[in-house]
Design a protein around this nucleic acid. Structure first.
Length: 938
RNA sequence: GCCUUGGUGGCGGAACUGGUAGACGCGCUGGAUUCAAAAUCCAGUUCUGGCAACAGAGUGUGGGUUCGAUUCCCACCCAAGGUACCA
């Protein structure tokens, strides 16, 4: 009989809830420790066994830290705005708020069953108006800020306006945003509100712009770059095309450098940092201006290889480049226009899929080389992207493979500027090495390293270019044409955006009767009858009143999914505050997240955007630190093990998976819960499960069909989901917790497989039997066996070290060894069993609480000090040393444990019979390897 | 293509800065207990040969450094994830 886990778990879960055992106190004299999980999106499918993996790990650590005397903040909440609830609403008419609430209920029940030590009094939900009020507030602050390049931080836009009022455009030197525009202080004051706003829009950290966006027609919305995977939408996999739209944009690019350098100071997984670095994509090079031959303007290019400037034989512009139409000669106009149309029609996906076909058209125009004044033909080609760099490249076919291919294809001349290199087959693209330049005027004889600073200097002297740093990171589109998201707190007076003051927030989502876009293509909020802002009463009023003087239209777009999740970790510190998004005192006490656990898939989305907002809020002095998460761990995904039955192609006849070689078959997914441990499925179960099997025929001995397996992501549609509730029913939450940890290293992805769960469950039964014999309490106060003490303290040492390194799988193994030892030594002394309960408490909290109360304590075990490791128990009097000779182990030598290296050597040489000679040869030298090996040289 | 991570029994996985490879668990084999089963306990289990003692091989492949390599170095193969006309 196993231990009564159902009774124990229910009892202690109720106790924790009633006693508020895990409430984080604030203020407190204890040192703080903040452990955060990435909060879940509450989907309709509920939790599967993969979801809790990270929660279990963070919970073990949180409980451990409490035992170690920390004031632990371990909160949980819901990222409850999102597309699935909205799509469900479109299909059923059910309000997303209703389905979201239902899903949250279900999530909460499932989470509670697993015995997590969350402080639920601090729960946040991003779709709650009390929460999104502050998301809207942050949006407004971004709108009311600009980035000051001199102080290298965000400042209030009011300070920028002051600068303009005092000195006009001269007050802001060298800012590209102003382009060539210049105005005096008097000019500024004479500008209309709309004119002023047009200038300010170039500086605001969130701004409106007509841009080419990724438009997903199926979803009816725009998507950010990180929401697109291989040219199709991340959600649903629908095609994405380019479309011009007026959108709210976040000026994340101003933070590119700080987002990059900030990575060095935080303890995040290296692969994840690398992904962020690549996404930011810093490249150092130069901007070069190529004057046009018959046109006043010049073409600006960005290049990482200005040292190869004498190898330029043509230029390529993106087909969308603004100068193309102006410079194209009449003779070439038809061809150019045709090419432009052709590229515009190709979807993003087509363009990406087909990178091998070389295409392009000559514009007929020429630029002049900035140093040699030679004529350079200007081409357009779709291998040049409009939105990277300046949308134009100086083509150096000898040094860049794409330019090389283009030149070969269109028979453009190639000049080799690299000494002693062969470019008959491919371009020479290496940067390092000792290859020097030739036919390069003042750069002749210089290597890459020497030529770079020299050429940048020359460009600057001649006024035709400068050293530049370019980033791949683009500003992030912030508007979504959706209903179930935060409304953007903006209304428009004559087209000029105005913010809604804090005291009138939140701007609550209006009711609509349709969650689809309006027939005119406006976002779903366009369906609302009440969606206009009255500036006299400062409230939302009937849309039909817009003609009145004081009533203005509200923004129809909502915020993207990442808005609410970009700052939630600060709300947990002070969740009920109605004055601030977090109070200075709370932020000051908790500071930042000490440990953040979550999936790798958020590397270039949530984890980048939230760092951006953090830096902004830090700049404006609302938050105390510039990086919010000191340490981050990516837990690996638990994958499903999908089962397949096999149907002979074109028939309704199914065969066993071991007979696949003989037939041409088609695999069909079946529900894993119907498959037994031997990978067999009963035909009768299968026929009951889905009607398509009812009329099929089977080649199944004893009515059993063999299935084949494949490891895939867990998902409802793949029928491979395992529900944690089922595991809790059968084995209990403590077993589930231990087993998920035992499965393998936390960071590693692994398929779910229940095969080993009995071993872990057995371990807990064994623990129980240390305390109870035939359900009778058997713990006594006798002195414990030294062997038992030794085993316990060795385990204590190992487990403590392993917890600190998040190696929970080896912790479980160590505990198993210890309990096996104690059980075979018949150990039932309080001296060991009392601290053992505390040691087990992070892993199997329910059982530990029960044992603790049976040991005669009142109250929870949760804050009892963790047992201290005592090295005295591990002292050994004798040690076994393996003796190696010529790399082979030859002897076991038993020596006193306190001997040092020298004494061991002497002891070996003193041993006349067995060791002074080896294979009849005298020993020349004894090498003692630190640890436990003795090496002998003859 | 590039970047990152990894490759160890039938399976999941251990092995601290180079030191007895395969801990722990599953599975399997045999035994004890039982009328029987479940549960529990004990023993064995990398592979090959052998009744056995034992011998040989062995951490993706091929080299190298070392008294000694899963661990360090070089080249390659494979898998997973990321990313891609980024100039």
């Amino acid at each position: 009989m196993g231990y009564p886990f159902q009774e124990i778990e229910a009892k202690w879960q109720a106790y924790w809830q009633k006693e508020q055992t895990f409430k984080a106190v604030q203020p407190s004299d204890l040192p703080k420790y903040y452990i955060l999980d990435m909060f879940p999106y509450p989907s309709g499918a509920g939790l599967h066994v993969g979801h809790p993996l990270g929660y279990i790990a963070s919970d073990i650590f949180a409980r451990y830290k409490r035992h170690k005397g920390f004031n632990v903040l371990h909160p949980q909440g819901y990222d409850s705005f999102g597309l699935p609830a909205e799509q469900y609403a479109i299909q059923t008419g059910q309000h997303p708020a209703v389905t979201t609430e239902e899903n949250i209920q279900r999530y909460r029940e499932q989470l509670d069953r697993m015995g997590f030590s969350f402080d639920w009094s601090r729960e946040v939900r991003t779709s709650n108006p009390d929460y999104y009020r502050w998301t809207q507030w942050i949006f407004i602050q971004l709108f009311e800020s600009y980035y000051c390049t001199e102080q290298n931080k965000a400042r209030s836009i009011k300070e920028l306006i002051e600068i303009f009022e005092k000195a006009g455009s001269d007050g802001l030197q060298g800012r590209e945003e102003l382009d060539k525009q210049s105005f005096s202080a008097a000019d500024w004051k004479s500008f209309s509100a709309a004119e002023q706003e047009e200038i300010l829009q170039k500086f605001r950290l969130t701004y409106l712009a007509e841009t080419e966006v990724n438009w997903c027609p199926e979803l009816g919305t725009v998507l950010a770059n990180d929401e697109i995977i291989n040219g199709v939408s991340e959600r649903g996999g629908y095609p994405v095309t380019k479309k011009k739209m007026k959108q709210w944009i976040m000026r994340i690019s101003t933070y590119a450098e700080r987002l990059l350098s900030g990575l060095d100071g935080i303890d995040w997984p290296e692969p994840l940092k690398e992904m962020q670095r690549n996404w930011i994509g810093k490249s150092t090079g130069a901007t070069v201006f190529f004057p046009l031959e018959d046109h006043p303007e010049s073409i600006e290019v960005f290049t990482t290889r200005p040292d190869t400037i004498f190898g330029v034989t043509f230029m390529t512009l993106a087909p969308e480049h603004p100068l193309v139409n102006q410079i194209t000669t009449d003779a070439q106009r038809q061809a150019v226009t045709a090419y432009q149309e052709q590229t515009a029609q190709r979807s993003e996906r087509e363009r990406m899929a087909d990178t091998k076909t070389i295409s392009g058209v000559f514009t007929g125009a020429y630029a002049l080389h900035p140093f040699t004044q030679q004529q350079i033909p200007i081409w357009i080609g779709d291998y040049v992207l409009a939105d990277y760099g300046t949308g134009a490249v100086m083509a150096v076919p000898c040094g860049d493979q794409r330019d090389y291919d283009f030149a070969k294809h269109f028979e453009i001349p190639i000049v080799n500027i690299f000494e002693q290199t062969d470019i008959s087959e491919a371009a020479f693209t290496e940067k390092g090495g000792k290859v020097s330049l030739q036919e390069s005027d003042f750069l002749n004889g210089l290597t890459y390293t020497d030529a770079m600073p020299r050429v940048i200097e020359a460009l600057e002297e001649a006024g035709v270019g400068r050293g530049t740093i370019n980033y791949r990171l683009r500003d992030a589109v912030f508007s979504r044409q959706r209903y179930w998201g935060e409304p953007i707190p903006i209304y428009y007076v004559n087209g000029v955006p105005q913010t809604i003051a804090l005291e009138y927030l939140p701007l609550q989502l209006p009711e609509v009767d349709q969650y689809l876009p309006t027939p005119e293509g406006a976002p779903p909020l366009g369906n609302a009858t009440q969606w206009a802002w009255d500036t006299r009463s400062n409230e939302v009023v009937e849309t039909s009143l817009i003609d009145h003087q004081s009533v203005f239209p509200l923004e129809l777009n909502t915020m993207p999914g990442w808005a609410g999740s970009s700052w939630y970790f600060y709300r947990y510190m002070d969740p009920k505050n109605s004055e601030h998004f977090v109070s200075a005192e709370a932020a000051d006490y908790w500071q930042d997240v000490d440990l953040y656990l979550g999936g790798r898939e958020h590397a270039t989305g949530h984890l980048l955007y939230s760092r951006f907002w953090q830096k902004f809020l830090f700049d404006r002095k609302w938050l105390p630190v510039e990086e919010y998460a000191k340490k981050l761990i990516n837990q690996g995904m638990i994958l499903g093990s999908t089962a397949f039955v096999h149907r002979i192609e074109g028939t309704q006849h199914y065969v066993s998976a071991d007979a696949l070689a003989e037939h041409k078959t088609q695999p069909i997914r079946v529900d894993v819960s119907l498959v037994n441990a031997q990978d067999e499925i009963l035909v009768s179960d299968l026929q009951q499960w889905q009607p398509q099997f009812a009329e099929a025929t089977f080649e199944a001995p004893q009515g059993k069909l063999k299935v084949s397996r494949e490891v895939e992501k867990m998902s409802k549609s793949k029928y491979n989901v395992v529900n944690p509730d089922a595991i809790c029913d059968r084995y209990g939450a403590d077993t589930l917790r231990l087993y998920e940890m035992f499965l393998g290293p936390l960071e590693q992805a692994k398929p779910w497989n229940t095969a080993g769960i009995s071993g872990v469950h057995n371990f807990l039964n064994k623990v129980y039997r240390l305390y109870f014999k035939d359900d009778l309490w058997q713990v006594n106060t006798d002195q414990a066996d030294p062997k038992a003490l030794k085993s316990f303290h060795a385990t204590l040492k190992k487990v403590t070290e392993d917890i600190e390194q998040f190696s929970f799988n080896t912790c479980v193994s160590a505990l198993m060894i210890c309990v096996n030892d104690l059980s075979s030594l018949n150990c039932n002394q309080k001296e060991i069993l009392e601290p053992l309960a505390v040691l087990l408490s992070p892993f199997a909290p329910h059982l530990a609480e029960e044992l603790w109360s049976r040991l005669g304590h009142s109250g929870s075990i949760a804050r009892i000090p963790f047992p201290e490791f005592n090295p005295d128990y591990l002292v050994e009097t004798e040690k076994n040393y393996p003796v190696s000779f010529n790399g082979k182990m030859r002897f076991q030598l038993t020596l006193a444990a306190d001997l040092d290296k020298k004494a061991i050597e002497e002891a070996v040489l003193a041993n006349e019979q067995t060791l002074k000679y080896v294979d009849g040869k005298p020993i020349k030298k004894v090498i003692v390897v630190p640890g436990k090996i003795i090496n002998i040289v003859i």
